[in-house]
Design a binder for these strands. Structure first.
Length: 534
RNA sequence: GCCAAUGUAGCUCAGUUGGCCAGAGCAGCUGAUUUGUAAUCAGCCGGUCGGGGGUUCGAAUCCCUCCAUUGGCUCCA
């Protein structure tokens, strides 16, 4: 068994071998010879790979007395390897199939120069400083408790404030875009999820159903808001004139994710989706879809997410069993998304097998500090749930028709979005979002009165500020405020009190001079204005 | 769920041949200080050593188990 204690030994051995400057030889072999070689060697894994290769395409690489199956290319010789680092050891299922044997996999990296390896390791350390779990703790945004349970985040006051501002921002955008807020319960009868298909698909891997004093009655913690919103749609008959209807809810859902999957705020078992479901006629699908894309773009722009990928997630054509609904519906839904992508000229990548079980989607992926990609925004076209829930509207022809459903969450979930936002900003949130915009630092308690007066004026202008009244030196107060990433520090002493001014220090930048209180208020308001409307 | 590792005060971490009352810095509290752009000084408070079980005269340290966390795998409605 290999563990981290062995890394050093492995690295040393690798370097020792590399110094021998052995050459790699590429050799074409027949399938028959290849099978013969690995049969003698007793390597069942290579034999399995070879069995799927075409005769004539098989190549071996030889290095000293070691021969391996490999398509290549390889380095010409081992001499170019100057620096190696074994990064981690992990179990990996053979060919990625969890039903098969797990092999031990070592992860490592090499550079042609020692200096480049060192630079890489420094970058890795830098990235870890932006880890949302670390910053979330430092800035008192969220926490977890063993007693509450794994993957169930507790939002602390500052984190809750931040999240509420994000929610309000989106609520305003949605109001303007014609969404109507709805509110639904956190549980629903098991039958509801049988209708939606979620029970068949995920029932076994969910939190166990909640039983009641009544024999046979069972409720599920809601893992999705869609079934509830379908029931809202069904609460009254709809005319084509009413469509589209857009029901929005910050809905908290619970999913029993595998324990090994949990990761900070990015993968949790209880989270709040900025969910909405749009019910529209088939003709309206593309325009509605584009309108949702515009909302996603607006959010990404307001928060400076420039580096994102747009992924179109379609059905796995070789495994249609995993999905509900007819081929015809899937084709309609998939082509709608592909056409919209085409028409908007967005740069997209298409992934097969990544669709939701009820429909294809367009996902907006953003990277974390270590370059791992996370899905934030998602837009999904669904012809299937409307059928399962027998949703209808009356058309101009006075006949009943089936609406199309668009599921969408521009943030994805509040938890994951805040996590990625923290890593992007290193905790230095835009001024419109940050829990504390300014902190007033009186030079000594002689200026406490004046500090309170400044605070009152700032509060009147809806600027979020506090006073640091501790009996500490100014240098200490500044240091603490810098570490807490409070954007503006207002130093007040004799000079400022006399003239009704504040000395302004910008976090990370230093002293930016003395302003009147009104000038400071204007400064903040201008900055907020610029951030939201860019 | 699987592989590997980790879990000592609110935070960051010391504490290995098993053995004195388990330590430090920061934070907090009290007092002194009244401070001008990244750490003032002193005192005090604070720990079921993740939980449970076991081995031992004796366990933070060794074993088992559960919980949680980290890096991967698988999964991701």
């Amino acid at each position: 068994m290999i563990s981290e204690n062995d890394f050093k030994k492995i690295e040393d051995k690798m370097l020792e071998l590399a110094r021998q400057k052995q050459e790699f030889f590429r050799k074409k072999v027949s399938k028959e010879d290849a099978i013969k070689y690995f049969t003698e060697k007793g390597d069942e894994y290579k034999l399995e790979l070879i069995s799927e290769l075409e005769d004539g395409e098989i190549t071996f690489y030889e290095l000293g007395n070691f021969t391996d199956l490999c398509r290549g290319p390889h380095l010409p010789n081992t001499g170019v390897i100057k620096a190696v680092k074994v990064l981690s050891v992990a179990g990996a299922y053979w060919r990625g199939d969890e039903n098969r044997k797990q092999l031990t996999r070592l992860y490592g990296i090499t550079f042609p120069k020692k200096k480049e390896l060192d630079e890489f390791l420094v970058r890795l350390e830098e990235a870890k400083k932006r880890d949302h779990r670390k910053i979330g703790k430092e800035l008192e945004l969220f926490t977890f408790s063993q007693s509450v349970g794994a993957g169930l985040p507790l939002w602390l006051p500052k984190g809750a404030q931040l999240r509420e501002r994000l929610e309000n921002f989106l609520k305003k955008v949605q109001r303007e875009a014609g969404y109507e807020p709805v509110i639904t319960p956190h549980i629903g009868k098991v039958e509801l999820y049988k209708t939606s298909g979620h029970y068949d698909k995920y029932g076994e891997d969910s939190f166990r159903p909640i039983s009641t004093p009544i024999e046979g009655e069972e409720f599920f913690l809601k893992p999705m808001n869609c079934p509830h919103h379908c029931e809202i749609y069904k609460a009254k008959p709809h005319s084509y004139r009413d469509l589209p209807v857009r029901y929005a809810e910050f809905g908290t859902v619970y999913r029993y994710e595998q324990s090994g999957e949990l990761h900070g705020l990015t993968r949790v078992r209880g989270f709040t989706q900025d969910d909405a479901h749009i019910f529209c006629t088939p003709d309206q699908v593309k325009d509605e879809f584009k309108a949702v894309m515009a909302i996603v773009m607006k959010i990404f722009s307001a928060l400076d997410f420039k580096d994102f990928a747009v992924q179109i997630s379609l059905r796995d054509p070789d495994d249609t069993e995993k999905y509900i609904g007819t081929d015809e519906n899937w084709e309609k839904a998939e082509s709608a998304i592909l056409e919209v992508a085409e028409e908007t000229g967005l740069n997209t990548i298409v992934e097969y097998g990544e669709a939701a079980f009820y429909g294809p989607k367009m996902d907006f992926m953003v990277k974390d500090a270590l370059g791992r990609k996370w899905q934030l925004g998602t837009i999904q076209v669904d012809y299937n749930l409307p059928e399962r829930f027998e949703l209808e509207y009356v058309g101009a022809d006075n006949e009943k028709h089936r609406p199309v459903m668009i599921h969408r969450a521009p943030f994805g979930s509040m938890e994951r979005f805040v996590a990625v936002l923290i890593e992007h900003t290193e905790g230095k949130f835009p001024i419109w979002l940050t829990p504390e915009q300014a902190i007033i630092l009186p030079i000594s308690e002689k200026y406490q009165k004046y500090a309170e007066k400044v605070l009152k004026l700032l509060n009147n202008s809806e600027i979020r500020a506090q006073i640091d009244s501790r009996s500490e030196k100014t240098g200490k107060k500044i240091r603490d405020a810098e570490l807490k990433r409070i954007p503006y520090m207002l130093i007040v002493g004799e000079k400022e009190e006399g003239q009704g001014l504040v000395s302004v220090r910008r976090q990370g930048k230093g002293d930016i001079g003395t302003l009147s209180i009104q000038e400071f208020v204007d400064l903040i308001n201008d900055e907020v204005e610029k951030e939201i409307n860019k």
